[in-house]
């Protein structure tokens, strides 16, 4: 799987509510301004579409940072 910076770039590009440069590996994305359950759904759908990995809401909530999320996707990809 691609590295975390590519992963971040993809999220920033695909999700209109998130601007370029807003995310770092250590960003706690659920504490970002504008976080909503809809954004949660969009994260899940983006990961489903781009990486063919299904994560659920509970797994998303258990990830504090973008790095955690990346690790979950990467682990499931293997």
């Amino acid at each position: 799987m691609e590295d975390i910076f590519e992963f971040i770039k993809k999220i920033e590009f695909e999700i209109d509510e998130i601007d370029e440069g807003m995310l770092q590996p250590e960003t706690n994305y659920r504490e970002m301004e504008g976080w909503s359950s809809m954004l949660g759904l969009i994260f899940i759908a983006l990961i489903d579409t781009e990486y063919d990995v299904t994560i659920n809401g509970e797994e998303l909530i258990n990830c504090a940072t973008i790095q955690d999320l990346y690790d979950v996707v990467k682990a499931k990809k293997q």
Binding site: S37, G40, G57, E58
Partner: peptide, 9 residues
């Protein structure tokens, strides 16, 4: 459905 969202929601 609960898993797609969160328990809080």
């Amino acid at each position: 459905a609960q898993q797609q969202g969160t328990k809080e929601q």
